[in-house]
């Protein structure tokens, strides 16, 4: 799993010295790769072991026989959460992406006095520790009857997702030339006409970045999930925490559960990594 090119790159100038630094470079990369992949190795190996052969002494050894039924057992424990997570993540992502796109359009093309201050006040919402709003949020969600349903979580993820989706779209639309918008306006297009004919068709990469980012955030979120749901509506992270936090005698179950929880976001990352990184950099405001 960690096959690495250990040969040094051929180089014409200063071959001896360069070979040495090149070797050092690949050694460093090898060590770093081991650091990042050893936990994955342990995760997979443990998930595939029969509980009876899991012992601390033989942690790093391959399983004597592949034991696939851990996944079936873990699936029974987390599949309800997986379904909840899938529903609430897709809903929250879609809604906050559309709202973020419209907000970004307004803030970049219809700027008004005080817009920057307002935008900064919006952005603050994505940095706050959610513990500082958790008690009123819990009361509010309960009072409108959404406690214990996925809808309370959807609402929460949409609202606290708005700052980042607005930020990404605002910066993205900032690159669209104002002259384009102006030309459409002279042709008689109004607010919605400009959005549907010019802005929206240009938005595909922006939507990809935002959707990936929001999907990952909502899928991985835990605090709201553990506060605002009951066992029937809990997301997969809460189900996994329960699976792992119970007095787990056999570690194959939580490991298999962790793999099931990680697969969707990992797939998104591997398939669309470039856009994932773009969202990551956008999160640091200036990027």
């Amino acid at each position: 799993m960690t096959t690495l090119p250990t040969t040094t790159a051929p180089s014409a100038a200063r071959p001896r010295r360069l070979d040495f630094t090149r070797a050092l470079l690949y050694l460093g990369l090898l060590v770093a790769t081991l650091f990042f992949l050893l936990p994955v190795y342990l995760l997979v190996v443990t998930a595939l072991k029969d509980p009876s052969v899991i012992s601390l002494d033989t942690t790093w050894q391959l399983p004597p026989a592949w034991h696939w039924s851990s996944f079936a057992d873990a699936w029974a424990k987390v599949s309800g959460g997986l379904r909840n997570s899938l529903e609430l993540t897709l809903l929250a992502t879609a809604i906050s992406a559309v709202m973020g796109s419209l907000n970004g359009y307004v803030l970049s093309k219809y700027s008004f006095r005080g817009a920057n201050l307002l935008f900064a006040l919006m952005l603050f919402g994505m940095f706050i520790p959610y513990q500082s709003v958790l008690i009123p949020l819990f009361q509010f969600v309960k009072s409108i009857g959404l406690y214990g349903t996925i809808w309370g979580l959807v609402l929460t993820h949409v609202v606290y997702g708005l700052p980042i989706t607005t930020l990404i779209f605002r910066n993205y639309y900032g690159e669209v030339p104002d002259a384009l918008v102006e030309a459409a306006r002279i042709d008689g297009a109004g607010f919605w006409g400009i959005y549907s004919r010019i802005i929206f068709p240009l938005s595909v990469p922006g939507f990809v970045v935002v959707i990936i980012w929001q999907f990952t955030q909502a899928w991985n979120e835990f605090l709201f999930g553990v506060t605002l749901t009951n066992p029937a509506s809990q997301p997969i992270t809460v189900a996994l925490a329960q699976l792992a936090g119970g007095q787990a005698v056999s570690w194959n179950l939580p490991m298999a559960g962790a793999i099931l929880t990680a697969i969707p976001t990992l797939l998104v990352y591997v398939l669309l990594g470039r856009y994932f990184v773009r969202g990551l950099l956008a999160g640091s405001v200036k990027g």
Binding site: V40, L43, N220, L240, A244, P254, A262, Y269, V277
Partner: peptide, 17 residues
């Protein structure tokens, strides 16, 4: 970069082991 795409709960479960 791949650990960035994981939930802290997944990371925590793996590292606890």
């Amino acid at each position: 970069l791949f650990p960035m795409s994981l939930s802290f709960i997944v990371t925590g479960t793996i590292w606890a082991w």
